[in-house]
Structure formats: structure tokens, C-alpha cells
Design a protein around this nucleic acid. Sequence first.
DNA 1: ATTGGTCCCATGGTCCGACCAATTTCCCCC
DNA 2: GGGGGAAATTGGTCGGACCATGGGACCAAT
Lengths: 248, 248
Amino acid sequence: MFERVAPRVTTVDACAKAMRVAILRGDLRVGERLPAERVLAERFGVNRVTVRSALAKLSSSRLLSVRQGSGYVVRDFRREGGPDLLPGLAELAGTNGHLSRLARDLLLMRRHMARAVLERVAEEAGDTDEVRTAVDRFEEVVTRGASMAEIAEADVAILSAVLDATRSPVLGLCLNPIADVVTQMPELRDAMYRNPQENIAGWRLLVGWMETRRRDLIDTVIAELERRDEETVRLLGRGPEKQSSNER
Amino acid sequence: MFERVAPRVTTVDACAKAMRVAILRGDLRVGERLPAERVLAERFGVNRVTVRSALAKLSSSRLLSVRQGSGYVVRDFRREGGPDLLPGLAELAGTNGHLSRLARDLLLMRRHMARAVLERVAEEAGDTDEVRTAVDRFEEVVTRGASMAEIAEADVAILSAVLDATRSPVLGLCLNPIADVVTQMPELRDAMYRNPQENIAGWRLLVGWMETRRRDLIDTVIAELERRDEETVRLLGRGPEKQSSNER
DNA sequence: ATTGGTCCCATGGTCCGACCAATTTCCCCC
DNA sequence: GGGGGAAATTGGTCGGACCATGGGACCAAT
């Protein structure tokens, strides 16, 4: 209990969200030009500097392109956007089957990226100890009945330790955003940690593999991950459970 | 010839780059606090609004975290950053072996993500025609001896067509940034399209596979991709070629 | 010695108004 | 009808001001 309170939404974020959902929902077509900054500022009832910051956010998310003298135009986020758009997209998708389809593809991608990491670990592995202690900490967090947010945080920490073992920043930079997305989608997160004992077992399996680092055993670890992923997707497809989740 | 000229760097971008390289080079340690906006503005000799926009850019790249009243602190980009940092990192790495290591991991990740896409295509494929025409266009661009930038653009267009065939936006959102990174690293890009005929052959192989969509033949397509990737990395390891590249 | 309250200052967030620079629009003139 | 250039539009930068939050110093009560 008494976990971190959500930070107050700032004016910029409010404006940014309004425009973001308009784009993600398709209310604004690709190539369409947005109203001028001055117009947007007046319509939102905020200062031009404020709406400018919001527009900068969307531009950095590749939702908009901008040219001086020309204006802001809507880009094709399906072809140019990044994984950071997924939480917003999931929010719009609702809790029906759309979300489970989305989660299925996301976990598919995550699984294959994990395989890439394991291949690299198999070649040049560093400290297994770091990973092991991270797993221990994860188990400790689970057993003391911490919140879902804390469990997810400890889970990501293990992943970071594994990535450190690759001694290459590249894999981490590719995987970080996708790993982060999971923690920002409450329904998916709850489904993934529905039974944390399974997660612990999966991590223990990985640690065991890291002792040998046999390439021909990578499939075993990934297969176990796939089994859990499929169960997660199945849970999401049934819609949210009502009885549990006394604490998140 | 006569390709797109680089857009003039704006004041904001100049400030952003200065601070970005300071972080990526490690001149600023993780957790360290940046000088206040007002101080930075004075030091850069720009307005506070300008330096604020630059800071916002770095924040959206997860290089900084910010809290009102507290200030900006440097985050651990290796654990929280995204693939958009790779071009800047490659620029700092120089042309020695570091770059080839970086490319090796990047291509490894890209290959595994491609495998995920093929698995999804194998399940529910859409138009093969779109992909075929995109490949034709790629061949046309190559045969007319276009610039490297145009070739890369046509290459990414094929990828987009394949992603459309999955009928799922998720895979695209995960893969787009990584595909984009390649086009932003000149040395890597030149090495990848050193012999465009190979690229064409690879795409033709993929198109052929999409006719059957047999899961057991995915490995064939990926293996061919891996062969080319390894050659690319080998080229980068030898350092830049001097004689060719009459046009980029 | 510890706890809680109060104040002050540094810092980011927002606002206003103005001017600069790139782009587009459109009208005038040939 | 076409070309050219002025004018309007739009994003980029600037200066200064005020508000809201964070953090530390200081003090008072327990």
C-alpha cells in the first residue's frame, strides 16, 4: 500500500494527449495539415508556448512532421511510429479482443528479441551473479506481496541484468522500449504476473541455462516463455477477471 | 546527384546535440543533475525557451528525467534509452571496430524481429502484390543508379509492405525505429547496399516464400539474410572502402 | 534527540507580447 | 497565360514575468 501517486498531469500533457488520440483514432488523416499554432493555442485556451511543447512531444513520437512556414502535418504512425505509441493504442482498443490481438503480437516480438539476446549471451557472457541476485530480489518482492507495479519493476530489473551480460548496449537500446511498454499497459501487466511463481520458475530456468550457455538449449527457454505468453493472451481474450486483483 | 540537402540545423537542435553527446560520451554521470535552465540558457547564449525545447527533446529520448522544482537529472540511457540513440552512439564510436560490433548486434536484432514478422505472415497473409510491386520499384531504383539514400528508402518501403501484410500495427511499431536507424548511419547503410543485386535477390526469395508461407521454410529466408548481414559486418570491420562510393 | 511546522529560495511550468525566418498565397504586370 | 514579387501565413526565437513544486534551513514542541 501507499505506492507512488500519479504525478499531476501538466497542461502540456493534456494538450498532447488530446491531439494524440485524435491522430491514433484516425480523426486526422495522414498528410492532413493541423491548424496553426496560434489557432490551436486559442482553441485549447492555452499559451502558444504551451501548445508548442505539446506539438514537440508529438513530433518526437513521429506522429507529426513540421516545417517552418508550412505547418504541422500528420504522419503515418503505422509506418513511422515507435513502440511508445502502443500504450495509447491499447487504451483506445478497449478490453475486447483487440487488446488480446495486440498483446499477442507484442509478446511475439518480445520473445524473438529475447532469443537474439540469448544468442549473444551464448557467445560472450558476463556475470551470471548479477542476474541471479536480480532474480532473488524478484522472488523477494513477489513473496512479500508487493504491488503489480513493483513486481513489474523487479522483472524489468532482471532483464537489465541479462542485457548487461551481453556487454553490448545495442540489444538493450532495441529492447528497452518494448519492455517498458508492458509496464504501461495495466491489463497486460496484470495478466503477465497473474501467477508470479511461474515467472520465478521461468527466470530460474534462464539462470540455469546461463550456466551452460548451450545454443541448442535456447529453444527450451524460449518455448517455456512462449507457453506463458500464450496463456497471457488467452487470459486477455476472456476479458478482465472480476474477483481478484484486490491490490495492484 | 542533386539529392535532398540537409535541413539547416536549428538553434534548438544545436543545443540538444551538445548536451546529447555530453551524456552519450559519459561526461555527465548517471544521476547527476544538470545546471538550471536559466544557467544553461545563459551559457549557450540562447533564450530559456530555446534551451527548454532542447531539454524536452532529450527528455523524450529518455536521456533526462525532469521534475518541477527539482531539475533535470541524467538517466541511464543504456537501461532506458531507445534505438533512436544508436545513430548518435555510432557517430561517437568512430569507424574502428566499435562500429562493426555495434552493427553486428543491430543486425542480429533486426534479423530476429524479421523472423517474428515472417511467423505472423505465415499465419495470416494479405496482399503479396503490394510487396511484389515494392520490390519491383526497388529494383528500378537500383538499376537507374540512384543515390544510397533513395535505395535505402525504397528498401524500407518494401519492409512496410511486408508489415502491412501482417495486418497488425504492432509489429510495425516495434520494427520501424530499428529499420529507421539503419538509414541514419551512413557507413552501415553503404555497407548494406554495397551490392544491391544481392538485396534484390534476397527480396525475391522472400516474395517466393510468401507464395507458400510454409513455416518450415522461414529459416531459409532468414539464413540468407544472416549471410548478407555477416558480410556487411565484415566490411565494416575492415574500415571504410576508399575507392568506391563515388555517389552516396 | 526526534518529530513536526514554517519559511525561503532555487527550479521547472506557464503566460504574454514581440520580432525573425521560411514558406505559401495571390495579385499585378508583361 | 506565365512569371515575378509583394504580402500574408506559419513556425522559430527572444525577453520578461508570474505561478507551483521541491528541498533545505531553521525553529518549536514533545
